[in-house]
């Protein structure tokens, strides 16, 4: 046994990447909306487990924070392996402010605990069907001061037609990563698409990213089943080869996510509002 073997066995781990789901559970989410979120999460978790298992770059962690009258951690950050998707119930007001505060506290704890070594930038996915007035602006500004949030990849799903888009755009600071779910099917597909794509992008090392043509094909092979599901749900706007060419030119993972998702979601965005089924 080599003199460094004990270190290798006890102390060395793969890098980690945490995906945070922030879910609105106010009254208006009751019924088919929250059912769709629950179904989508139940289907997404196994996909993330496959990505985590087959991705040599990173182990995926997940966390779920819901907010109704108050915000609560349904699941604090923990490994995606063995993660059982909970059933989330809706009811109450929309206290997005409390969600931002709880998230901020969690990220500050993280900041105090680790330097960031061994971690990839986290992913934050916000799902909301309503919104708050300007009350969210101050807390979001505070949240954006937290390094883990600032450096993270952020996306938001607007559920239905009554969403405060400005709140979602203030969350991501990138209109290209705010998506509207026009229907139940679309909502489920978007949750799966954004969760999986953002996890894939966020958990790639820079070195792998530098070879993104191969990386894209690499992630495709590791998650073929996942890709197939997307290809049936979404029609990429351009040929796959063009998509990878595009990825070659992106410099930030947030931009990469926006570009990748745009290819899959653009067709739907062009649908006329008459086709929306909310």
């Amino acid at each position: 046994m080599g003199i460094y073997d004990s270190i290798l066995m006890k102390a060395v781990t793969r890098r980690t990447m945490t995906i945070y789901f922030l879910i609105d559970i106010s009254w208006s989410m009751r019924g088919y909306k929250i059912d769709a979120v629950n179904q989508a999460l139940a289907e997404t978790i196994p996909m993330l487990q496959v990505i985590s298992e087959e991705n040599a770059d990173a182990e995926i962690m997940a966390a779920i924070l819901t907010y109704g009258t108050t915000a609560e951690w349904v699941k604090e950050p923990s490994s995606i392996m063995g993660f059982i998707s909970p059933t989330i119930y809706a009811g109450g007001q929309t206290n997005f402010k409390d969600a931002c505060i709880k998230l901020k506290e969690m990220l500050l704890r993280q900041e105090a605990k680790t330097t960031g070594a061994g971690s990839y930038a986290p992913v934050f996915i916000l799902m909301a069907d309503g919104g708050s007035t300007n009350a969210h602006k101050t807390v979001l500004r505070d949240l954006w001061h937290i390094k883990w949030f600032k450096h993270g990849i952020k996306a938001a799903i607007a559920i239905g037609n009554d969403v405060h888009f400005d709140m979602l755009e203030d969350f991501t600071k990138d209109p290209d990563t705010v998506f509207r779910a026009h229907s139940i099917k679309r909502l489920k597909d978007l949750i799966k698409l954004i969760s999986v794509k953002s996890s894939q992008i966020a958990s790639q090392s820079s070195a792998v990213q530098s070879r993104s043509r191969n990386t894209t094909s690499q992630t495709s092979t590791t998650s073929t089943a996942v890709e197939k599901q997307f290809n049936t749900a979404f029609t990429p706007q351009t040929a796959a080869s063009n998509a990878t060419q595009e990825i070659d030119r992106v410099y930030s993972k947030q931009e990469e996510l926006a570009k990748t998702l745009k290819l899959f979601t653009a067709a739907e965005d062009e649908d006329s509002p008459e086709n929306w089924d909310w």
């Binding site: 270190i7 102390a11 781990t13 980690t16 061994g118 971690s119």
Partner: peptide
């Protein structure tokens, strides 16, 4: 480089690794 740093989630383990190198 950060290639070594990123292998250790606990800072103490990184210091311990370098300490072990010195011992060796």
């Amino acid at each position: 480089s950060d290639g070594i740093e990123d292998c250790f989630h606990e800072r103490a383990d990184l210091h311990k690794f370098f300490h072990r190198i010195l011992f060796d």
